Simulated assay, not measured.
Amino acid sequence: MDRRTVLRATVAGGAAAFSGSLWAGAAVAAPAQPGPSPYGALRSADANGIQLPAGFTSRVIARSRRTVTGTSYVWHDAPDGGACFTAGTGWIYVSNSEITPGGGASAVRFNADGTIASAYRILSGTNQNCAGGATPWGTWLSCEEVSRGYVYETYPQGGTAAVRRDAMGRFKHEAAACDPDRRVIYLTEDESNGCLYRFRPTNWGSLADGTLEVLVAGSATSGPVTWARVPDPSGADTLTRNQVSGAKRFNGGEGCWYADGTCWFTTKGDNRVWAYDAVNQRIDLAYDAARVSGSAPLTGVDNITGARSGDLFVAEDGGNMEICVITPDEIVAPFLRITGQSSSEICGPAFSPDGTRFYFSSQRGTSGSSSGGITYEVRGPFRS
């Protein structure tokens, strides 16, 4: 069975359900290499300054410090990590705010036809909320990217106060990805000598308590790994990443995405996309800019999400402001490029529950300031 077959997916309620073994045979596969995009070449920039393949269009959903169209809600500064959730006949896009102090997260609710129904705050009074992850039970885990930061469980539908989840550890949190098969949540750490963690809730569906573990392995980029319990998740006396001897170090953990058997995560310090095979408990490289033949199409590796087709979409923090696609055939190519915003970064890539709309933000927009963030939607013939 080839990877195109095993990576087929359906997306619903902010989580992906894949059939087959996502990383079957990948232990001996080379990292992805440049090639022609399945979507074709990028066209000239549209009215929003975005270069897209033929058949795709973009629109602006929200701008920092301006009211969201059709609402009275003012969109937050520095939009960052995001995800989509089913909401009645429509859906919700959630976005973090990577500022200190203030931070938090907001939501935009869409009607079935894609028009905006409302926008509102779901988390306030936190710091540097960077990325996070959706849970299978419909909540959004918003992560503080500060030393000894927390994870907050938020409620995209609104009307329920966010809850700080202390048991998930205190460290420079970046992203989270839920693995419903093993009933664990993977967590990345944005430090140059950071770790990959997993949290085992005592009761799946509740994050009130559980066990925090760290990945243990040698220095190799592929091979078997194990997990060890973090003695003190609070990091009160010793930082979490320094509590377990042999914990594997990753250079700037960023995005994190789980799909049937594999946790994909990125490291910005060395421009890599990793794959943790949870079935066989091993890691491998899915992409490494240093191992690309010729010019690397993907640099500034950051947030990551998956599509119904099994394609991975990886956003750049810097680079040349692209979102690149990594296909099941191990081809990496640009999917879109934002022009005129070289002092920004792309954040929060996420598909609508039906897989037909794609959301992301330019954190600092054309101004290069956190007050200039722009959140977009792209529509077009996405692969299924």
Rank of each mutant, 00 (worst) to 15 (best):
Val6Asp: 10
Gly13Gln: 11
Gly20His: 06
Ser21Thr: 13
Ser21Val: 13
Trp23Lys: 02
Ala29Thr: 13
Gln33Tyr: 08
Pro36Ser: 15
Ile50Ala: 04
Gln51Val: 05
Pro53His: 05
Ser58Trp: 03
Val60Met: 13
Arg63Trp: 08
Gly70Val: 00
Thr71Trp: 11
Gly82Thr: 01
Gly88Leu: 08
Gly88Arg: 11
Asn96Tyr: 00
Glu98Ala: 05
Gly102Ile: 05
Ala105Ile: 03
Ser106Asn: 14
Ala107Asp: 05
Asn111His: 13
Ser124Phe: 04
Gly138Pro: 08
Cys143Gly: 09
Val146Gln: 10
Val151Trp: 07
Val151Phe: 11
Pro156His: 00
Pro156Ala: 05
Gly159Asp: 09
Gly159Met: 10
Ala167Phe: 02
Arg170Val: 09
Phe171Val: 05
Ala176Met: 13
Ala177Phe: 02
Arg183Val: 03
Val184Thr: 14
Glu191Ser: 14
Ser192Tyr: 09
Ser192His: 12
Gly194Thr: 06
Gly194Leu: 03
Leu196Pro: 01
Tyr197Pro: 07
Trp204Gln: 04
Gly205Ser: 03
Ala220Trp: 03
Ser222Glu: 07
Trp227Asp: 07
Asp232Gly: 02
Ser234Gln: 09
Thr238Asp: 06
Arg241Tyr: 14
Ala247Gln: 04
Gly253Leu: 03
Glu254Leu: 02
Cys256Gly: 07
Trp257Ile: 12
Asp260Leu: 06
Phe265Gln: 07
Asp277Gln: 03
Tyr287Gly: 06
Asp288Cys: 01
Ser295Asn: 14
Leu298Phe: 05
Val301Phe: 00
Ala307Ile: 04
Ser309Gln: 08
Asp311Ser: 11
Glu316Arg: 02
Gly318Asn: 09
Glu322Tyr: 09
Ile326Ala: 06
Pro328Leu: 03
Arg337Phe: 05
Ser343Phe: 08
Gly348Arg: 00
Pro349Ile: 02
Tyr359Asn: 00
Tyr359Cys: 00
Phe360Met: 04
Gln363Gly: 04
Gln363Met: 14
Gly373Arg: 04
Arg379Thr: 15
